[in-house]
Design a binder for these strands. Structure first.
Lengths: 137, 137
DNA sequence: GCATTTCCTATTAAATTGGTAGGATTAGTA
DNA sequence: TACTAATCCTACCAATTTAATAGGAAATGC
């Protein structure tokens, strides 16, 4: 299940990408426009900034802005920041690999093989979708 | 993240599919062979039985058996029983559809479009994988 | 120097997950 | 018929995660 955090994060990024103003977009605006609890949204945007996807400016006329063109922001990157690993099990994760404690032999594990296929097909979608695709109507 | 329930369930089904005996497979055997807490496994197999994937026999020499040939048991069916909806958001779920409370217009929602693609690509994998594929080594 | 905004830490309530406990029910067998 | 071995069923519990809230520190612009 997609977390609210991710859902809110994607909506916020789309909102920012659609902004025509030259000034940064403020959390309050996004929260109001997308019906997201403001304080919760703050923490999400902060995470996106720490990951290098967003930039920010403090104080009056401050806010958040994209660090790259929407067409260069891949869903792989965004989803990993917001939702974490794309794989459904750590033992098939490319970026967050961890061995299962229970599985003696990964190559022989039936779940393993299936989850690799799911990972690859999901990855294919995220790799071919950018923020621009989301924000174009 | 894949739940332990699903992981255990898949391993148990594979175990049963690989059994050569003509007698049903007992929970205790599976629990021991796959390192799964027995009581937890009981509840999982019960769910699979109620969904019609497994059959059971009580008493001495009782246990669980497959209701269909492994090659006819699709992952779509199994995953829906164990993990629930395949879609990451209820508003794109084919079998468990629910409207989002926050989204005024589904067609315009940027998250919606992305999640439909993820659902379809995952579905494609599950639709083309059977229990036989998991249990073949 | 004051208002406005992001930034940071801590706390909390609710839901979910993973597992346990205990016994009822059913089927085979001596 | 009594006993044993298995599934079946209900309830409960602990740990974790999620979704949020609270309160203020730090920076910026006027």
């Amino acid at each position: 299940m997609l977390s609210k955090k991710t859902k809110y994060g994607l909506k916020a990024l789309t909102f920012i990408a659609r902004s025509t103003s030259s000034e940064p977009v403020q959390v309050g605006e996004i929260a109001k426009g997308e019906q997201i609890p403001q304080k919760f949204l703050e923490s999400i945007l902060l995470a996106l900034r720490k990951a290098g996807i967003l930039g920010s400016k403090k104080g009056k006329h401050g806010g958040y802005y994209l660090r790259k063109d929407p067409s260069e922001i891949l869903m792989t990157e965004v989803m990993r920041v917001l939702e974490g690993p794309i794989a459904m099990v750590p033992c098939v994760s490319l970026n967050f690999y961890e061995k299962c404690d229970d599985c003696p032999d990964e190559a022989a594990c039936s779940v393993h093989k299936l989850m690799i296929q799911v990972r690859d097909s999901t990855l294919e979608v995220f790799k071919n979708t950018t923020l621009k695709d989301l924000s174009d109507r």
